[in-house]
């Protein structure tokens, strides 16, 4: 029975001592220790998650890289083919234009040639008429100068008329 009787003094001193130990250790031991443990675990967990995240990012980046490469290749091809088509189109256009222009020039030239021709023809005609008149005049004058022959011719004509 004596074992089961709490002693007033021991209870009192135990309360005091344990209370002090609790307060002192709480402030000077458990707080810093638990803090460090907590921080260390946080840092560790963070490092792990960081590593995981970075790994994921790297694999994602690799995928992205191949994707981008393929895309670039595609784009490159597209651009090149487009350029080819463009070039062909431009050349064709230029050709067409040139052709048209040439035709226009030809037409113009034809017109001009025609105009010149007309003009020349007109000139030739006017000169020809003048010249022919001149010649005719000269011929006539020449013809009229030989009076014997004229008379003979007139006689011949008269003969013909008379005979008729």
């Amino acid at each position: 029975m004596e074992l089961l009787m709490p002693g007033l003094g021991l209870v009192f001193w135990m309360t005091v001592a344990f209370g002090f130990v609790l307060l002192i250790l709480k402030k000077y031991a458990w707080a810093p220790i638990l803090n460090v443990l907590h921080e260390r675990e946080n840092k560790l967990a963070q490092s792990f998650s960081d590593a995981k995240r970075i790994e994921q990012e790297i694999s994602q980046l690799a995928v992205l890289r191949t994707e981008k490469l393929a895309e670039a290749e595609e784009k490159h091809k597209e651009i090149v083919s487009k350029a080819q088509i463009d070039a062909e189109r431009i050349i064709e256009e230029a050709r067409e234009k040139a052709r048209q222009e040439a035709r226009l020039i030809n037409e113009k030239a034809d017109e001009m040639v025609e105009a010149y021709k007309q003009k020349a023809m007109r000139e030739v005609r006017s000169q020809l008429s003048a010249l022919s008149l001149d010649i005719a005049e000269k011929v006539l004058l020449e013809e009229f100068s030989d009076k014997q022959r004229n008379a003979r011719y007139v006689n011949k004509l008269l003969d013909e008329v008379v005979m008729n």
């Binding site: 007033l8 021991l10 001193w13 002090f20 250790l25 000077y28 707080a31 220790i33």
Partner: peptide
């Protein structure tokens, strides 16, 4: 009213001091 520093009280004090010394040192 018996507030004597008995054997157990002294033992409690000794272990309290020991605990404080050890763990405050670790805490530091």
């Amino acid at each position: 009213y018996d507030f004597s520093i008995t054997k157990n009280v002294l033992a409690v004090f000794i272990s309290s001091v020991l605990l404080c010394l050890v763990f405050v040192k670790i805490g530091r």
